[in-house]
Amino acid sequence: MIEVNHLTKRFGRVTAVDDVTFRVERGEILGFLGPNGAGKTTTMRILTGYMPATDGTAVVAGFNVFEQPLDAKRRTGYLPETPPLYPDMTVREYLDFVARIKGLPPAERRPRVDTAMERTRVADVRDRHCGKLSKGYRQRVGLAQAILHNPEVLILDEPTAGLDPKQIIETRELIKGLAGDHTIILSTHILPEVSQTCQRVVIINKGRVVAVDTPANLTKRLRGSEMLYVEVDAGAADARALFERLPGVTRVGETGRHDGAVGYEVETVRGQDIRRDLARAVVHEGWGLLELRPTGMSLEEIFLQVTTSEEPVAEVSHE
């Protein structure tokens, strides 16, 4: 549905997007993840035909956005970072105007506007001026504008930015509900959003694609080894030596001690669960086992890892 090939965008000497390539299948929600200034917005602006690329191609809904911009734009809905509202228009007037410039035939405009207002739950403010709406409503009217002409492709730039927690959940549900008939790209720098709404993630940093995968796979990929956190009260004995002797353990690190208890990080070979052996050994020694839990990396840590370090992803170890 969306095909991006070797897309590059330079502003003078600054390269905002550098050789970005990815695909989005029909009905899929793709998360675009990266820190501020990573090139997310620029990529989206290129896809929506707002600005041309310096190099590379982008095909949206079967149309090259540089060669057939009008055809591509007719099939794309776009919510920019700041919802593009005219403060002097009422919500209804605004959506009517959008319906006209999106090229909807006169007979379809009214029902489409009504449907969009209903889906985004802005019908109750239809006669208020856009400039007087709260941030949450503004965002939703922006979303209504994007889905108005029932586009095949939806491009949403930080759709939940600035919303309160309840609105964020509602917006996510709305976006999930739109998937299926629509192919969606959404950008965010908030990680839980990606794992909750997206089927696939493109992590982008400094204009380059760092990783493309499902949220689950990304987490797995980073877990080249598995990690356990253990806290024991071993008295004067050396628990570390015991743990190191257990089969499957590759490394043991002490993380801290308080009130006689010592915390360890035990790294094991991937796919081998040593929790039972470890518990049995501790009990056998007569020590107190205070805590034992696996520590997988959260997406947040992955994000930090992939976007802050140059090292290959698999070699990342927990400090």
Binding site: T48, Y50, L70, T76, I101, G103
Partner: peptide, 8 residues
């Protein structure tokens, strides 16, 4: 952004 990304 709305105008420039609309089919006009």
């Amino acid at each position: 952004e709305l105008l420039l990304t609309s089919p006009v």
